[in-house]
């Protein structure tokens, strides 16, 4: 019973965080700050949803597979973000900085 409530809480918060991250990629002004919004949806949202599903699965093979998915996302999502940011910087895409004259 307690496990059910805990799992629903994790799933709901994870889903809401995903939506907030998706709103973030529409509200932020330039590419580099959008990358931070993608980071929210990639990290905590994914962790919470997988954790909530793991509570539902209990100790089983499914929980182990969820753990594998979690480990894989945990390693690849920062790598993909870094590759994106690095490629964007190398191609000359200028980030919008706070100490420019066009202050937001």
């Amino acid at each position: 019973m307690i496990i059910d409530i805990l799992s629903w809480a994790c799933l709901t918060v994870g889903g809401i965080l995903g939506i907030i991250g998706a709103i973030g990629i529409h509200r932020f002004p330039d590419f580099y700050s959008r990358l931070h919004a993608v980071g929210i949806a990639d990290t905590l949202s994914a962790i919470l949803i997988l954790l909530g599903l793991g509570f539902q699965a209990g100790l089983s093979l499914a929980a182990f597979k969820l753990f594998l998915i979690f480990v894989f996302l945990f390693f690849t999502s920062p790598t993909a973000s870094h590759a994106l940011a690095n490629a964007a910087l190398h191609s000359g895409l200028e980030p919008e900085l706070a100490d420019d004259e066009n202050k937001k």
């Binding site: 990629i25 590419f31 997988l50 994106l84």
Partner: peptide, 18 residues
């Protein structure tokens, strides 16, 4: 920019996994 598109597709793929 094209990088916005790639980042969005990356997010799309992560959400598909979930």
């Amino acid at each position: 920019t094209v990088y916005d598109r790639i980042a969005a597709v990356n997010l799309f793929g992560t959400k598909t996994v979930l």
